[in-house]
Simulated assay, not measured.
Amino acid sequence: MLMDHSLLNEQQTHWEQSFAKNSEMFGEQPSLAALRATEILKARGGKDILELGAGQGRDTLHFARNGVHVHVLEYTREGVEHIEKKAEEYGLNDMITVTQHDVREPFPLPENSLDGCYSHMLYCMALTSEELVKLNHHVHNVIRPGAYNLYTVRHKGDVHYGKGIHRGEDLYEMGGFIVHFFDRVKVENLTDGYRLVDVHEFEEGGLPRRLYQVTLEKLA
């Protein structure tokens, strides 16, 4: 099936509208992925991290409350404004920096400058395999040697895999949202410049969603 890139690009508008309609779309509590990532990153001395696709900032706020400075790159203007508002409301402005950015483009951050990178289901958004390789390279550029890149993705054991409208590769659209489902081969294909430390399987939400949390270590 040929990939329709215009449909993938339209996801930004869909997310903007979804966030505008629901100011707490994923709730206020941090995700299970963020709870685990906080312990992993702090154990490695992570004080200054990057978060990709933070949405409305529930995990961002959790990191900041735990003494971690978070540089957020978020696709939507709605998300950026919501995180900035929450940071001010909770007195966390000094711990959170938010920039609207398309992660398919090189990151506006210095090379080798951050203690790690975290993202929750950003890698399984409407991104092609080629774009995922570039994304992983952009992360590699800005984290320090030895730093971790932790990302989560829905995998092919998820109940929604193969359902909805097929949009090419392992991408399926359900309810207007396009999801890129992973298997272990896809995880292995995204290790250039990294050591694969761990693939942690977990479940989250009412379905439940079935996910991997992948931990990659940047090689020196």
Score class of each variant (00 low, 15 high):
G193Y: 02
C124L: 05
H155D: 01
T13P: 03
K134D: 13
L122P: 06
N136R: 12
A87R: 10
D192F: 06
H140A: 13
G193F: 00
L219I: 12
L52F: 09
I165K: 14
G205H: 12
H138M: 01
G55D: 00
Q213W: 02
H120A: 09
V197W: 01
K42F: 00
V197N: 14
E24R: 06
G146Q: 00
A34E: 04
R154D: 01
E81W: 02
L2H: 14
K47A: 13
H155G: 05
Y151S: 04
V185N: 14
F182P: 09
G176H: 00
E88L: 15
K85C: 09
Y90D: 11
H166M: 02
H137Q: 15
K47Q: 15
S119L: 01
E204Y: 10
D102S: 08
D158I: 04
Y161C: 13
H5T: 10
Q56H: 06
L122N: 06
P110C: 04
L132A: 08
Y212N: 03
E16M: 12
Q56Y: 05
G57Q: 07
A43G: 15
V70L: 01
L216F: 00
V179K: 06
K156N: 08
I83S: 11
D102L: 09
D115W: 05
I143L: 08
V133Y: 01
S18V: 07
G91S: 04
S31Q: 08
D192N: 13
P145Y: 03
N112E: 13
Q100D: 03
